[in-house]
Amino acid sequence: MRIESLEFKSGVYAIRNTRNGKTYIGSSVNLASRIKSHASRMRNGVSKNRYLQADWDSHGPEAFSVEVLVYCLPEHCVSYEQQCFNAFRPEYNISPNAGSQTGWSPTTEHAKAHSNRMLKLWSDPVFREKVRAKYRSPVVTDEYRTKVSEGLRQHWQDHGDARRLAMKSRRKSKVASRRNGSPELSEFRSVLSRSLWEVRAYREKVESAFDAARSDPEVQKKRLETLASESHKAKLKVNAKALWSDPEYRAKNCKFTDEQITAMRLAKRSGAKLKELASEYGISVPQVSAICTGRQYHWVLMPADK
């Protein structure tokens, strides 16, 4: 898993020690930034979790792996993290409560060791210069800007169509991956959602949000405007047409078969009265008219089109 692919994604993650099977679970609104922070702190020996730091020093970075347990909205991170705490019982987590430092207090030895490590780190001129360079504003000349602009313009002229197609394909695959995910992840999300819905306070919060939306005049006004818009009506029409074009859906929901519709249209073309056909098939006269003119059962070809 590439850490860059998690940029600005929120969710719950796990850091696993493959040597002893111990786990650390956390959550963040930016998974990439949080995981990079863990790795940087442990490499420099200044991790806030002394147990995780001790095993990192003993086993080395190659003994640790990172896994995203669930993606979720930022406001749900703590709730999902607590559910993961209850399900996996992570050994490295000092606090039993998600989103809280309750249960963790640094010892005198840990605080002193942390202070010594930071003093040693900041006494290194190379480290200080590295930090200053990170926050120093880069010097960008007009010549450099012109060179970059010309290079980008030439690149998009030569490879623009291929790049746009590749970017569009990647966006579609990312959307599909976030929507579907792996079967294991989908099952895990389902279990977490069910357990979350069993909490009465969560249900009351969701129901109160829905009630507030129903009673909000602005929300209802926007809803009515959306329903009355031509784009929404066109979308509903397209969706309905696609749905009724599915043979399996028609078999479950249609009153007549395609053969009966063809026979009805042929009878009308031969001179049968609408009232007679309505009596024969047990439907109303307007329905017979809609079927014979193709406004209903549009997927069945008219006799003249066969």
Results as ranks from 00 to 15, higher is better:
Glu218Phe: 12
Lys36Ile: 12
Ile261His: 07
Tyr80His: 09
Ser100Asp: 05
Leu224Ala: 13
Ser229Cys: 08
Asn30Met: 04
Ala234Thr: 05
Glu81Lys: 08
Gln220Ala: 08
Gly271Ala: 06
Gly26Arg: 11
Tyr135Gln: 09
His114Cys: 03
Gly103Cys: 09
Asp211Val: 14
Ile25Leu: 10
Ser79Val: 12
His155Asn: 05
Ser95Arg: 05
Lys268Tyr: 09
Ala213Gly: 08
Thr141Asp: 02
Asn20Gly: 01
Cys292Val: 03
Leu152Asn: 11
Ala201Glu: 14
Ser279Asn: 02
Thr23Trp: 05
Pro90Ala: 01
Phe64Asn: 02
Met167Leu: 15
His298Ser: 15
Ser149Gly: 01
Leu69Trp: 02
Val140Tyr: 15
Ser215Asn: 12
Val131Met: 01
Ser270Thr: 10
Arg153Met: 08
Asp161Ile: 14
Ser40Trp: 06
Gln157Pro: 03
Thr226Asp: 13
Lys233Glu: 14
Glu204Leu: 15
Phe85Gly: 05
Arg295Ala: 07
Asn239Val: 09
Ser182Pro: 08
Ser190Tyr: 04
Glu187Val: 15
Arg163Ala: 11
Lys273Gln: 02
Ala166His: 03
Arg194Leu: 05
Ser215Met: 13
Val288Met: 00
Ala263Val: 15
Glu150Val: 14
Glu259Ser: 12
Arg128Ile: 08
Gly294Ala: 05
Lys130Asp: 04
Lys237Ile: 08
Ala278Ile: 00
Ser33Pro: 07
Asn97Ser: 04
Ser284Leu: 01
Trp122Ile: 15
Trp244Leu: 14
Ala113Tyr: 04
Leu152Gln: 13
Ser100Ile: 04
Leu6Lys: 00
Arg223Asn: 12
Gly282Gln: 06
Ala234Leu: 15
Leu73Cys: 04
Ala14Leu: 13
Lys22Asp: 11
Ala209Glu: 02
Lys237Asp: 07
Gly103Ala: 06
Gly103Trp: 10
Leu121Thr: 08
Leu266Phe: 11
Lys147Gly: 04
Leu192Glu: 06
Leu196Gly: 00
Ser182Asp: 05
Ala201Thr: 14
Glu280Asp: 10
Leu185Tyr: 04
Phe88Leu: 11
Val29Arg: 13
Gly181Ala: 13
Ser95His: 03
Ser27Asp: 10
Ser137Trp: 07
Val12Phe: 00
